[in-house]
Amino acid sequence: MIDVIEAARRAGVRWLSLYAFSTENWQRPGAEVDFLMRLVRRVVRKHAPLLHARGIRCRFLGVTDPRIPPALTRDFADLMTLTEENRGMTLTVAFDHGGRGDIVTAARSLIRSGVPAEAVDERSFAAHLPFPDTPDVDLVIRTSGEQRISNFMLWQVAYAEWIFPPVLWPDFRAPHFLACLHAYQQRDRRFGGVTPNSNGAERP
């Protein structure tokens, strides 16, 4: 994982998000969840100094479920505190995250703020999402050959490019990541508009 983060940083990626644990993952067997929590805690603590030294701002998206061990929540908070002033890459770790849940949260917040219905547009709605400064996602890499969204940052991935490498996540390394980046560079992003390149013209 740290390998991929470092590769992304070197490649000049400014925003990187990792999907560590979804709100649906709680349905997994208790022992597996416990193991995962301990693993995440070890990983966070092990890499905290390096992440900070690399100027990476870390934050955790989600983390609301009371079942998360307090010690882990504490470590998350500490890592966020430690790196909040960093202005290198922003690493968002989605933990106990669900895209629909975020949208519901935003809707609630919007209603509470008493905005009239006509005044709500996409931009003002997005301002109520958690971490509203997160830009739209350009590229989603879904490893392990799965081809699903799995409730991941639903709002932000609206116009994302998707790549589905067959390699399993634990085996996914820097070269795989760079290959995905390269594939992304070949994509022609039109955002629903017409192609700027007429047939037969040379690609930039």
Binding site: R41, R42, V44, R45, A48, P49, H52, A71, R74, D75, A77, D78, L79, T81, L82, E84, E85
Partner: peptide, 13 residues
């Protein structure tokens, strides 16, 4: 606060 966070993260579990 940041120093405290770092110390806590570095303290062995």
């Amino acid at each position: 606060k940041r120093a405290g966070a770092l110390v806590r993260l570095l303290t062995p579990i």
